[in-house]
């Protein structure tokens, strides 16, 4: 939301004299140098590490059903208690991080790739390509994202992959709009004209010259879209669309936990807390990136 409006007043700093590598490094440094940025990066890294090392860190097999140990309150054996099947919740929460991150990552990569490409195309060439694709993304944007997820699930069946696809589609428009807006500004700049005079082909101009200068707003959008995808994945899983049993994403766990709110309130608390940690991390990263890349914009 904020990003859409922001893009309209976006003031871009062209860093065309710098190489892309040092740009990324500098951006990362500037993100980490802010206390909240560092905090956000640490939280996100922590969740990522837990997800990667889940098989080694988890105290139990997340799928093993300890019979007679159903809905046990947190104790020394089951630090976060057990679920309705007698499975260790801590282990399941750890493995749940994998689903959140992979769905978030996959959808952002998909949305980002398609969105950026489409944005480059329509920004550089304008004309009917621009009109058609942008109207298409406008249409996608006009749907409440949760309903897009529900519709895709109805069409393809509920599964983690399909949720990733739905979220990927839902995140295309923002990437496309941002890229397009940047391209519209950049393509009239002198360095583009210069490159063209030197005989550079159109694809080369777009990819080698214009694209690097559209990256900075996209960086922020990457973190924003990731947080959005993680949140929505949890929401859709909460509605019963998403990962298939016995696998469980945090949203699925919360959805099941609803049945045991009185008996086992911890069941409804811990997967949600895990979600909050990841979302906070991503949000802080997004905020810090925003400040780092554009210190004059008055957003947090």
């Amino acid at each position: 939301m904020a990003a859409t409006l922001g893009s309209k007043t976006q003031t871009l700093k062209a860093r065309r004299t710098q190489s892309t590598d040092s740009f990324w490094l500098a951006a990362a440094k500037r993100v980490v140098r802010q206390p909240l940025g560092l905090f956000g990066v640490s939280l996100t890294l922590m969740v990522t590490l837990v997800a990667l090392l889940a098989p080694y860190l988890a105290p139990h097999d997340p799928f093993f059903q300890y019979q007679g140990q159903e809905l046990v309150a947190p104790n020394s054996v089951y630090p976060l208690g057990t679920d309705e099947m007698g499975r260790d919740l801590l282990s399941r929460v750890m493995f749940g991080a994998r689903i959140s991150l992979s769905v978030g990552g996959a959808s952002v990569v998909m949305g980002g790739l398609v969105g950026v490409l489409s944005g480059l195309l329509s920004g550089y060439w304008e004309g009917w390509v621009d009109a058609v694709t942008m109207r298409l993304w406008d249409s996608v944007l006009a749907f409440p994202p949760v309903l897009v997820g529900i519709a895709v699930a109805a069409l393809l069946g509920p599964s983690t992959t399909n949720v990733a696809i739905a979220l990927g589609i839902a995140s295309i428009p923002q990437f496309a709009r941002l890229t397009r807006a940047s391209v519209l500004v950049e393509k009239h700049k002198e360095y583009v004209t210069a490159a063209r005079c030197l005989g550079a082909s159109n694809p080369r101009i777009v990819l080698r010259h214009i694209f690097p200068n559209t990256v900075s707003p996209l960086l922020v959008q990457l973190a924003v879209a990731m947080a959005f995808a993680v949140l929505l994945e949890a929401g859709l899983s909460f509605l019963g669309i998403g990962s298939q049993p016995p696998e469980a994403s945090w949203g699925t766990m919360l959805s099941t936990a609803r049945r045991f709110l009185v008996e086992a309130p911890w069941y409804g608390v811990f997967p949600g807390l895990a979600l909050v940690v990841l979302l906070l991390g991503l949000n802080f990263v997004a905020d810090a990136a925003r400040t780092a890349l554009d210190p004059h914009r008055r957003q947090y």
């Binding site: 799928f63 093993f64 059903q65 309705e84 099947m85 699930a153 109805a154 069946g157 509920p158 019963g240 298939q244 049993p245 016995p246």
Partner: peptide
């Protein structure tokens, strides 16, 4: 689905691999 999950876990112990598909 609870029933399916219970059976799946028990079948695994007998060397049978069952996959659960939850549909609308």
């Amino acid at each position: 689905t609870t029933l399916a999950e219970m059976v799946q876990a028990d079948l695994q112990k007998t060397g049978v691999n069952a996959k659960i598909e939850v549909v609308e």
